[in-house]
Design a protein around this nucleic acid. Structure first.
Lengths: 300, 300
DNA sequence: GCAATTGTCTGACTAAAGTCAGGCAAAAAT
DNA sequence: ATTTTTGCCTGACTTTAGTCAGACAATTGC
């Protein structure tokens, strides 16, 4: 067996790849063990996971249209799937699970869950394992983070906000308590008044940013405030903050805002540096929130 | 797309699996792109990686003996591999790469290396990524850690020892300097005087332990000292320390020792706790090393 | 209204992977 | 010395995955 010197990072990655390659067979053994070939199982799972349009499945799984058609036919013959023409465009077909298909999908899900739970239960430090998996997954799936508008009261948004508050509490010398801060009303961060973005990487929320609309005018024009900009540690360095800010700037213009402002704190030096680099100028305090000590503005 | 609540660890693992499943195809694309089917490429790589016996390859890759035979024959026809009967048991066959096979194997290795390097280069925090990959790989490949006897001067052993010294320097309030400590002679930790173990997980050294033989007798019998017991952070909690200690105890008996001793430090509470739980009893100081403040003994 | 395009399906392939039943020689057991 | 077992090989399969050319209907562009 070749030996890997600890100082050789390339070799370490390759070791990781080998471990994962071998293990993924086991991890995805849920796809096997139910007497169905991998291809059919993958299609069944894609449908169960909410992908209905045949074209979307084909694209997601990277299948040829002929093969796709045949796999679908096989699942139909088994009575697990029904297809119907898309209303609106009868060339497209939409697949749906039958009750038997739902049951089969649930069986795959249960298998997969129990395997994941077994790995977790066997590990002495599940939290560290999860954090490491998140980081690796984010690094591997780097391009796949999507930004979605969401109500800040949805679970995904709340999860991000709570992680954000927890991080502030950790990093501010005197802690952080939301109720003492100027916490924006959710409705101020929903169109048409504002906006709330959640960054999603393969289903997991990994960041958020809010745009709060204000009613008063500054120099005769509407303005907005950037709030709750946060990126999960597992997804830092991928340029997510920049992407979210860009989306917010575009949206702010759509909403008729001429000016953006934000406040932040010197205990978050990477944030301060980012604002400076992104064309924000430091201004005087514009609110009475007790926590911030840096104030920025950007004209659109 | 299903949303994953951050508090649901099972869902997070499954997300990781998906990310990895999809990516592993890419990671192992080195196996493709050279005009050879996956099966043949895997066999070629297994041989290049030092697995010679046909049975061992078959076992490692999980192949049927008929299929294995055919793949081997294909590689022979390409002039990449030669097989010969095992000396000693002419039923077994041993495969070896020809020079052309070596070149082909090297090409796979280079492809794989450059892909790994590209991932690394694209990541903002390579060290964190590597640590996370190590941890995940150790968790997934948990059963696969092998203990090997090694000369403490080999690179794998030196890597572990340096990591061990660095950790002591970090954890002792006043640092740690090997030259001030009672550093055993390498020959005292080699049979027949002693023993040095390195724990290897898929090629990466993840732990070590030494048994130093002493010449003086205690109560009329030979004794040994356990030194340099260390487990990499990425592999902690897998019970490796216990496995290494068990191996050392067996070896100590083989070497005619009736008693084991060791010293440690209260700055390493998990080590102290482990010794207590493993049947060691605290004794008085038995050496003049400046660093330890706890001394243990175990009768065999 | 007609041609071009799009989305799916079918038939006719190929390549790869895997299974199974023996065959044969070497080694081990009796 | 014989039987049995072991390790590998071969031939004759099957299944899965994947490709390609064309058929066909619905839709879009002009």
């Amino acid at each position: 067996m070749t030996e890997i010197h600890p100082e050789d990072p390339v070799a370490r990655i390759r070791r990781f790849n080998r471990a994962v390659t071998r293990e993924v067979g086991v991890l995805d053994a849920s796809f096997l063990g139910r007497g169905r070939p991998l291809g059919a199982a993958r299609v069944l799972n894609a449908i169960g996971r909410g992908r209905g349009e045949v074209a979307a499945i084909r694209d997601y799984l990277g299948l040829d249209s002929g093969l796709m058609s045949r796999l679908l036919r096989g699942l139909e013959a088994e009575g697990l799937v029904e297809t119907a023409a898309d209303e609106g465009d009868a060339r497209r077909r939409v697949a749906r699970l039958t009750p038997a298909g739902e049951a089969e999908f649930a069986a795959y899900e249960a298998l997969s869950d129990s395997q994941a739970a077994a790995i977790l239960a066997a590990h002495p430090k599940p939290a560290a394992l999860l954090a490491a998996m998140d980081l690796v997954a984010s690094a591997l799936g780097r391009g796949d983070v999507t930004l979605e508008e969401a109500d800040p009261r949805t679970p995904a948004a709340r999860g991000c906000l709570e992680a954000y508050y927890a991080e502030l509490a950790r990093r501010f010398a005197d802690g952080f308590e939301v109720s003492l801060s100027r916490d924006p009303e959710a409705t101020d961060m929903i169109r048409p008044r504002g906006l709330f973005l959640v960054a999603i990487s393969d289903g997991l929320p990994v960041g958020c940013a809010g745009l709060k609309g204000h009613d008063d005018l500054v120099e005769g024009a509407r303005w907005g405030e950037v709030k709750r900009l946060w990126v999960s540690p597992s997804a830092r360095g991928l340029g997510l903050a920049g992407r979210m800010m860009a989306r917010i700037e575009v949206a702010a213009q759509e909403l008729g805002m001429a000016r953006l402002r934000l406040d932040t704190n010197s205990a978050l030096p990477e944030a301060v540096a980012m604002y400076r680099n992104a064309g924000w100028t430091e201004i005087d305090r514009f609110n009475d929130d007790p926590y911030p000590d840096f104030f920025f503005e950007k004209l659109l």
